[in-house]
């Protein structure tokens, strides 16, 4: 059943990527709108923590 692990790995990759893209994108937009420079970093951190939380919900909670 190594196939489950293969799929789990790629969906973890997908979650992390979409977390970074979405919340990093929100931060980038806020930076442009408000003229600041730190929202992108905050957005990326929020995205990574949200994605890791989601991975924990999906795969780590046993």
């Amino acid at each position: 059943m190594a196939k489950r692990e293969e799929s789990a790995m790629w969906s973890i990759f997908g979650y992390l990527l979409s977390g970074l893209l979405f919340w990093g994108g929100v931060g980038y937009g806020l930076d442009h709108w408000l003229g600041k420079s730190y929202f992108t970093l905050i957005g990326l951190l929020v995205g990574v923590s949200g994605a890791i939380y989601l991975v924990w919900l999906r795969f780590g909670r046993e």
Partner: peptide, 23 residues
């Protein structure tokens, strides 16, 4: 079943760093 969640969480943490670099 015990090792799988630990391995996946470790993989997620390591992969997060790689994707951070990419972004």
């Amino acid at each position: 079943s015990v090792l799988q969640p630990i391995a996946f969480l470790g993989f997620a943490l390591a992969e997060a760093l790689a994707l951070f670099g990419l972004v």
